[in-house]
Simulated scan of single mutants.
Amino acid sequence: MPIKVFISHKKEDAEQAAAIARHLTVNGLSVYLDVIDAQLAKSGPDLADYIRDQMDKCTQLLAVISAQTQASWWVPWEIGVATEKERFLASFISGNASVPEFLVKWPYLRTQADLDKYIKESKRAELLVEDRVQKGYRTTARAHGFRSFHTSLKASLGQP
């Protein structure tokens, strides 16, 4: 499956999420950003099912975290779904927001240079997954790529 990043964000962070989406797209990654999705008029279980379906089409989740995010129900839910689905996971910490304790486990980005490292590691990990699939390790390829992505990206960002 080619790289496709689900960008999770609070409505108030739509401008930041759109800027991130543009940067990822210009650098060769596909994205899903709900700002341009008319289907989001759904509510309740229908909306949750729709979002899960969109996440099924993605290989990664990048959560935009800002001071407003703590008032969101959806961003933590989407992070939980991405974790359950073993999607490559990272956060972009916007402004002077702090990294929530439950996200310290995953790589977090703060700058465009960090975003460039995310792009590089995403492409490298996806090649690793494709290589393992071609070698006959289909059932473990995604999990192996998942661990490799997080370990390598955290190391490149200088995070423990």
Rank of each mutant, 00 (worst) to 15 (best):
F149P: 04
G28M: 02
P45W: 12
E12G: 15
S156F: 02
N27L: 04
S148Q: 11
Q16H: 07
T25F: 01
A82V: 01
Y137T: 08
P76H: 01
E78T: 02
K105I: 12
E12D: 13
A14T: 07
G136N: 01
A21C: 00
I79C: 11
S94W: 06
P76S: 03
I20Y: 01
V104T: 10
E126Y: 08
I36M: 10
A17K: 03
A90D: 02
A41C: 12
S8D: 06
F149E: 06
A38V: 14
R138L: 14
A18G: 06
A97V: 04
K105V: 10
E130N: 12
D49F: 10
Y50K: 09
S122K: 04
P76L: 01
W77N: 05
H23C: 08
A143I: 14
S148F: 10
L24K: 03
K117A: 10
S122D: 05
H144V: 13
P107E: 01
H144W: 13
Q112D: 13
F146D: 02
R124M: 08
K154H: 04
F88W: 12
K57W: 08
A82E: 00
P107L: 03
R147S: 13
I93G: 00
E121P: 01
V5S: 00
M55T: 04
W74K: 07
L109I: 03
A48T: 09
F149S: 09
G95L: 06
L61G: 02
Q54I: 06
W106S: 08
R110H: 09
L157S: 04
F146M: 05
A71R: 08
Q39I: 05
K120I: 08
L89S: 10
L40A: 00
R138W: 12
S156R: 12
G95D: 06
A38D: 12
V31L: 04
L127V: 03
R138N: 11
D131I: 09
A14S: 07
A18P: 00
Q112V: 13
E78A: 02
H144L: 15
Q134T: 10
I20P: 01
H23P: 01
A97S: 09
A19I: 04
V31E: 05
L153Q: 01
T139M: 11
S30R: 11
D56Y: 09
S8H: 05
R52K: 15
A97L: 02
P100H: 04
D131S: 12
A143R: 14
W106K: 02
D53C: 07
F149Q: 07
G80C: 05
D131F: 08
P100K: 07
L109E: 00
F88R: 09
A82G: 07
A17L: 02
A41P: 00
A14C: 03
F149D: 07
W77M: 07
D53V: 05
L24Y: 01
K120H: 11
E12V: 11
G28H: 02
L62D: 01
F149M: 08
Q60Y: 08
K4F: 06
R87L: 15
V5R: 00
H9F: 02
E12C: 08
E101M: 08
D13Y: 00
G44S: 11
D37W: 03
H9G: 00
A17P: 00
N96E: 15
E15C: 05
T139D: 15
